[in-house]
């Protein structure tokens, strides 16, 4: 099979396709270190001044702080809610189970603009002011389905006899959860925290609709894209974000595999969530 021309052609296609996938991403560091205000070829020379610009932009620092606050809050809240749902789905049978889980997973297939507009309308009706917390609400909504997807596999791989053994040996229900269940699913929990943090950090549409005067990082970038002179520093910012996202994802993947290994499953075969 290896030597047939069709397989070779397919391999070549795969390489071209990967080049297509990476084309825009590779430009990011290229222009971040390029010594010119115009984003175009040919490149003019190496510089790190666009990174220095970032250090001295006060409004950027505020946006980063806002985004970190929103990201961390969203990650914690959605992981807690996701853990409840995943645990219930993996362990118990209850009425309307499929319907309830399906409803909670719904934001995964809804266009984000619909989620954003719907929340905006509700807030307008209730007379609640827009703030970073309304953004957190929207982000938790779209992150929970991803957390459930990650955590369900963690809870599914759990051997119930371990929990039963712990209870037989006199541990309370809460004690069993804290000392047996939680450590076993911990890698899944961390992976869920990292993924939801990454989603929240990058989310634009909901943040754009639901934020008041405090902007998150993507909303800040959106406002900068209008000014051609700001573009090189936006490229530098994008490069930093790219490096951070990749790092977080590698961490998340590492924790996920560790959780799979802990439970004796084959970690490499499915590729997991990512």
């Amino acid at each position: 099979m290896k030597s047939n021309p069709f397989a070779k052609l397919l391999g070549l296609y795969a390489v071209i396709y990967m080049a297509f996938l990476y084309a825009p991403v590779i430009l990011l560091p290229l222009f971040a270190f390029n010594d010119a205000t115009i984003i175009a070829f040919p490149l003019s020379g190496y510089t790190t001044k666009w990174f220095d610009v970032l250090w001295n932009t006060e409004s950027l620092h505020v946006a980063v702080k806002n985004s970190l606050l929103v990201g961390v809050s969203s990650a914690i809240l959605s992981t807690v809610l996701g853990a409840c749902a995943a645990r219930a789905a993996a362990r118990y049978n209850f009425p309307l189970k499929r319907g309830i889980i399906g409803f909670i997973m719904l934001p995964m297939v809804l266009p984000e603009i619909i989620v954003a507009v719907a929340l905006l309308v509700l807030l307008m009706q209730l007379g609640l002011p827009l703030s970073l917390w309304t953004v957190v609400g929207g982000h938790v909504l779209i992150c929970v389905p991803f957390c459930i997807a990650i955590l369900t596999s963690a809870f599914n791989g759990l051997d119930h006899s371990l929990e039963e053994a712990s209870q037989d040996l006199g541990e309370s229900r809460w004690g069993t959860f804290r000392r047996v269940t939680l450590p076993l699913v911990m890698p899944g929990v961390i992976s869920s925290l990292l993924i939801s943090f990454t989603i929240s950090l990058d989310e634009f549409i909901i943040a754009f609709f639901l934020t008041g005067t405090d902007v998150t990082l993507p909303v800040y970038i959106w406002s900068q894209l209008r000014f051609p002179s700001k573009l090189p520093s936006v490229m530098a910012l994008g490069t930093i974000l790219l490096a951070m996202s990749v790092l977080l994802l590698i961490l998340a993947e590492w924790f996920r595999r560790r959780s799979a290994r802990k439970q004796g499953a084959d970690a490499s075969s499915t590729g997991g969530f990512v």
Binding site: A88, Y92, F103, L141, I148
Partner: peptide
């Protein structure tokens, strides 16, 4: 078992009802 499952699922369900 059904009751326990429903109790556990109710926080995310409430959240989805309120915000979705």
């Amino acid at each position: 078992e059904g009751r326990r499952g429903l109790t556990l699922i109710s926080p995310p369900l409430m959240f989805a009802i309120a915000l979705l």
